[in-house]
Design a protein around this nucleic acid. Structure first.
Length: 480
RNA sequence: GGCCCCAUCGUCUAGCGGUCCAGGACGUCGCCCUUUCACGGCGAAAACACGGGUUCGAUUCCCGUUGGGGUCACCA
């Protein structure tokens, strides 16, 4: 599935890549992967990775929307070189280029009205033929119209244009397919098509790595590049990420911003990094790939050409892996706010230290920070504990008597350790002629309020003698 | 609809003419470990879309069909 090899690097020398998101309120999963690939490519080749915010649409480009993107990038550890650029800063330069194109005969002023355009489009549709703008102003020998005008590119109509795409291979399009798109709007502002090309050139971008949805645009942009006589960048159009239904990932698929996975589920940045990397790219049978390995191994030829579906299950599995690898203190700090919300009070240093100590037992049982916090709350909940349904069921019948026996044996212990508590509980089971589980399960319910938890002797030690005995006592009191 | 792109297990992928009755991972299902749930270990089911070529030989190359996706603004 590798892309056909593209001979020779047309731009020898330093690599410059860029990520150019438009601020929509969050860092889109697909955008994050595009950013990742650009970052990786630049780092791999000792080049520079630039960030440019496409804030031409001023209405949408709020500070909050921009901050969300920068925040997401930092979270993933995708550091950009230098300050971020803002496309709106360069509007003057964009207009300048449009006028230069005009002077050199590669563009023309067009006074065609929106209505005339709409009429052309309608008749094209009625006759079931492809729509292509046909402006009378393309070749009008200096004649001028009335009122405001736009500047359109005088796109070539003969021959064809080919792009040697690093991912897609050679892609060719008939120039007749390209129409005279607008470069400068009637209010003098630049269109996206013009702005990207000018900015990429001015920023010295050598490799344009972006989503597949821009492949068609690339031909239009290349027309500007050629008209200006600028060096052509290397293009690499990576396939889009799809939802479970196979369509381009969008809001209707649910969470689509990386911060949602971070905040709601509790995904670790290294897990997201690894997952996104493996989505559409592979390195043999390697599954868990570190940041360093990624920089060492990443290459554009490894990027597949077909879209891939976002699979939450795999992300979660990977996240579980990274949780197990993460330092206990870091994890404790990460889940502290979640637990605070769950137990309804802030956690002090002792509480966080307790979480850290419990972490080795908690970690293997969670795939997300959300699950990790959920599994840890029993440590910090206030007495008397609420019992869930399964815990309540475990405490029915003869369980109460067994619990009382366990309480007595544990109370008599001189030393409160895993070994000592285990011995005590096993003695009760043996003396009563029941299986360990018949004693351990009610004990678990009493201590945690749940039917599942870390190993019961770990729980006993983590909670400590006083708290443990207290919790068991609470249940005995209820049983009467 | 025009144009462009894509096509290996349910999903992510390995495979770059013979090593493939197709390998790994997630998910699923068994079994083991076990005080619960996980983790871990072992095992199972599961794919080269179809049809033509090229070739001594196609999952790998070419063409077509089918299916899927993207894109067609004075949005970005």
């Amino acid at each position: 599935m590798s892309a056909s090899p593209v001979p020779g690097d047309p731009v020898p020398g330093a690599v410059v890549t860029r990520f150019a998101p438009s601020p929509t309120g969050f860092l889109h999963i697909g955008g994050a992967r595009t950013a990742l690939f650009n970052w990786l490519y630049a780092r791999r080749h000792g080049g520079r990775f630039l960030l440019r915010i496409e804030d031409t649409d001023r209405a949408r480009s709020t500070d909050a929307a921009i901050a969300a993107i920068l925040d997401g990038m930092r979270w993933l550890g995708l550091d950009w070189d230098g300050d971020e650029y803002y496309q709106s800063q360069f509007a003057g330069r964009h207009a300048e280029v449009a006028h230069e194109l005009l002077q050199r005969g590669h563009a023309y002023r067009c006074w065609m009205s929106q209505e005339a355009l709409a009429a052309q489009r309608a008749s094209a549709q009625a006759e079931r033929r492809p729509f292509r703008i046909e402006s009378e102003w393309r070749d009008c020998d200096g004649r001028e119209g009335e009122g405001p005008s736009v500047i359109r590119l005088k796109a070539p109509r003969e021959d064809e244009t080919a792009i040697e795409d690093k991912v897609q291979g050679r892609v060719t399009v008939q120039n007749a397919e390209l129409d005279d798109f607008v470069l400068l709007r009637s209010d003098g502002t630049p269109t996206y098509m013009l702005a990207v090309v000018v900015d990429d050139h001015d920023m010295g971008v050598t490799h344009v790595i972006r989503g597949d949805d821009h492949l068609n645009n690339a031909f239009r942009q290349l027309a500007i590049v050629k008209a200006m006589g600028w060096p052509e960048p290397v293009y690499a159009h990576v396939p889009l990420i799809h939802g479970q239904d196979g369509a381009k990932l969008s809001k209707r698929h649910g969470a689509v911003g990386v911060e949602a996975y971070r905040d709601a589920l509790g995904i670790l940045p290294e897990a997201m990094f690894n997952y996104l990397l493996r989505l559409g790219w592979g390195h043999g049978d390697d599954e868990t790939i570190s940041r360093e390995e990624a920089v060492r191994w990443f290459d554009l030829d490894g990027v597949g050409r077909s879209p891939s579906r976002f699979d939450l299950k795999k992300l979660e599995n990977l996240n579980g892996h990274y949780i197990r690898e993460a330092a206990d203190e870091r994890l404790a700090g990460l889940i502290a706010p979640r637990i605070a919300a769950l137990v309804g009070r802030d956690l002090d240093r002792d509480a966080i230290a307790l979480l850290g100590r419990a972490m080795p037992e908690l970690k293997p049982r969670a795939r997300t920070l959300d699950e990790l916090a959920e599994g840890a709350t029993f440590l910090l909940r206030a007495r008397p504990l609420d019992m869930d349904d399964k815990a309540t069921a475990l405490l029915e019948g003869e369980a109460a008597d067994l619990l009382a026996l366990v309480h007595r044996h544990l109370s008599a212990l001189a030393e409160w350790s895993q070994e000592a508590t285990e011995r005590a509980v096993r003695e009760v089971a043996e003396a009563e002629g029941v299986k360990l589980g018949q004693v351990a399960q009610p004990l678990r319910a009493a201590l945690t309020g749940r039917a599942t938890s870390p190993g019961i002797f770990d729980v006993l030690v983590l909670l400590g003698r006083e708290e443990s005995l207290g919790r068991i006592g609470d249940r005995m009191a209820v049983a009467g």
